[in-house]
Design a protein around this nucleic acid. Structure first.
Length: 553
RNA sequence: GCGCCUGUAGCUCAGUUGGAAAGAGCAACUGCCUUCUAAGCAGUGGGUCAGGGGUUCGAAUCCCUUCAGGCGCGCCA
């Protein structure tokens, strides 16, 4: 719909002799009676042309009418001026029917605009340390990353999803030591538990697993002697748990990048060397620094400490260097908002390496506040007490959990109340949407049982869809590509979620008011076509969100 | 102290990137299942868009400021 409108306006602007054609915005008017689409273009160029918006709108409309008279066809039934200078367009029913016909015939191919044009994007998300199970915040990042990946992929981008594994350094060593200590304790040795060690119950699980496989083999050994084994074993077991959680939550990754590997392959050394050559590295106070202030960071950052160890940031430099040097057109990092202070220094790396900082887009996902019955659930990583994503999935369900995340924009600080999420389960919006899809499936089953041909519905006589309720749904369906485009351009999958609720909110009343399958075969075919079109859109949207579309409920 | 995010109905949140008379779900109340799935439908009530200035044809949206909440400001990861 939008394409048609934009084309018509551009043509008429040219016909009016305008030299530079502005980008045409189209929006849905607040009220049905105002038409199907509106554009504020007359108002936005009013200052430029030094004419009143309404005057410009009038000239534009006349020009459009002239052009369509010459062409001998028009997609519009009515074009008029409204308010301060909006031009409201009402499409002809013939146009609407022909568009719906295309939707039914070409399915997703009709819905999904090719915006990416094959551009390669890498999206890195979650990247939780393999030192413990995923928690709900990771779930939010995961749901967002998955949906965004699906969205961009559907929009013609070539998307690669990556999980960065922080399997090097102190954290993982501490993990190994924690497990080692528990191992000793479980076998009756009074071994001191590390001060800052991981105290969660999962540490014991790992220790028990080692006992099961190796018995008392490591009992009389020092940690130093067996640390490689404990570290490796622990992090692998936890990582496989993470992978299982992600699988069950419906999150997919293409690549898993190990931090340790960056060190082993010399990528870290190489990155430092490169920055040194470019002149952004210096020594001070016995440490080695990266001059990130050259690119707007608050202060320079240490990359090699006095004791010769690298910092966490150092491998991040190498990691982003590696990423940016691949053939991606764009990099997207999805981080928890608590890491926002990190953006300037990573952007500085991108620039120092000679790339435009726009090439890296950092999306922040706000914190999740976990509640139960209105009261905050105490979470302390140090004490090892926290509600895991697994527990929430088990209690609330993956689809509901994802839907809650995807009905909020990433910026919003989210209150996730377990009781509310569960209590809503029967009337949760996610079921409302899924139910619409299941109901349509049921209608089709019923129609087939009655011997009605449900194939080639694009050949049905769509003109029979003439009541207001039907035309309203048709218009809503044809808006989907605009919603899709908006979601893609802003990286906001939640727009799809809201749209799906709206279209479902039109289908259910329609279902209640009208019978789809009746003795009137032609009308039945037409209504099946409409339901089929709704189902196409519902399934397309749910697929993007990474939420299942059950056939029956 | 500085920086980032947030403040919209009783609660949880949208608001098409500055557009027309502010929306949804939940919660509350009243009706609807011999007919394609009642996880549904029909109806009712609910707002100083945190407060105050400014920018312009036009502001919940942009700028300034005050207040409130969250997060971040390590040679931690």
């Amino acid at each position: 719909m939008k394409k048609e409108l934009v084309k018509v306006i551009e043509d008429s602007l040219k016909a009016l002799g305008l030299e530079t054609i502005p980008s045409i915005e189209a929006e849905v008017p607040p009220n049905d009676s105002m038409g199907d689409l509106a554009t504020p273009v007359a108002m936005s160029i009013a200052a430029l042309l030094k004419k009143s918006p309404r005057k410009i709108a009038e000239e534009l409309i006349n020009s459009i009418k002239d052009l369509s008279a010459k062409a001998g066809k028009s997609a519009f039934e009515k074009i008029d001026i409204a308010g301060p200078g909006f031009i409201n367009f009402t499409f002809s029913k013939e146009y609407l029917y022909s568009e719906i016909k295309k939707l039914i015939e070409y399915k997703s191919g009709f819905l999904r605009e090719d915006i990416g044009k094959g551009r390669r994007v890498q999206i890195e998300f979650i990247s939780a340390n393999p030192t413990g199970p995923l928690h709900l915040g990771h779930g939010r990042g995961g749901a967002t990353g998955e949906a965004l990946s699906n969205l961009l992929n559907a929009a013609g981008y070539k998307v690669e999803r990556e999980y960065y594994i922080n399997d090097a350094g102190k954290q993982v060593k501490l993990l190994g030591l924690s497990v080692f200590a528990r191992y000793q304790q479980l076998l009756g040795i009074e071994y001191p538990f590390p001060e800052e060690g991981y105290k969660g119950g999962y540490i014991e699980d790992v220790a028990n697993e080692i006992i099961k496989e190796n018995g008392k083999k490591f009992l009389q050994r020092s940690f130093e002697a067996v640390s490689d084994f404990f570290i490796d074993y622990s992090y692998r077991m936890i990582l496989s748990g993470i992978k299982k959680d992600l699988k069950d939550f419906g999150i997919n990754f293409d690549t898993w990048q190990s931090e340790e590997e960056l060190y082993k392959k010399g990528d870290v050394e190489e990155a430092i060397e490169d920055l040194k050559i470019k002149g952004f590295i210096y020594e001070k106070d016995g440490a080695t620094w990266f001059r990130s202030t050259a690119f707007g960071d608050d202060k320079d950052r240490v990359i090699i400490k006095q004791d010769g160890e690298y910092t966490y940031f150092t491998s991040d430099i190498a990691y982003h260097k590696k990423k940016i040097e691949k053939t991606y057109d764009e990099l997207i990092d999805i981080w928890g908002a608590d890491h926002h202070g990190y953006i300037p220094r990573v952007k500085a790396v991108i620039e120092a390496l000679g790339y435009p900082k726009e090439k890296l887009k950092v999306l922040l996902v706000q914190m999740v506040n976990l509640l139960r019955g209105g009261k905050p659930v105490q979470m302390s990583k140090r004490a090892g007490e926290f509600v895991t994503l697994r527990e929430v999935m088990n209690e609330v369900g993956p689809d509901t959990t994802k839907f809650i995340f995807l009905t909020r924009r990433p910026d919003s600080h989210l209150d996730f109340d377990l009781e509310v999420a569960k209590a809503q389960s029967s009337e949760n919006p996610v079921f409302y949407v899924q139910y619409a899809n299941a109901r349509i499936n049921s209608i089709f089953t019923h129609a087939k049982e009655k011997g009605i041909n449900t194939d080639r519905l694009y050949d049905a006589d769509l003109m029979l869809l003439s009541v207001y309720d039907e035309l309203r749904i048709i218009r809503k369906l044809l808006i989907y590509p605009m919603v899709f485009e908006g979601a893609v351009n802003t990286y906001e999958p939640h727009r799809i979620t809201f749209y799906l609720q709206e279209i479902s909110g039109m289908f259910h009343p329609y279902y209640n008011k009208f019978r789809v399958v009746s003795d009137d075969i032609e009308l039945t075919r037409a209504r099946l076509a409409l339901c089929g079109a709704i189902r196409i859109v519902l399934q397309d949207g749910l697929e993007i969100l990474g939420i299942s579309a059950p056939e029956k409920m």
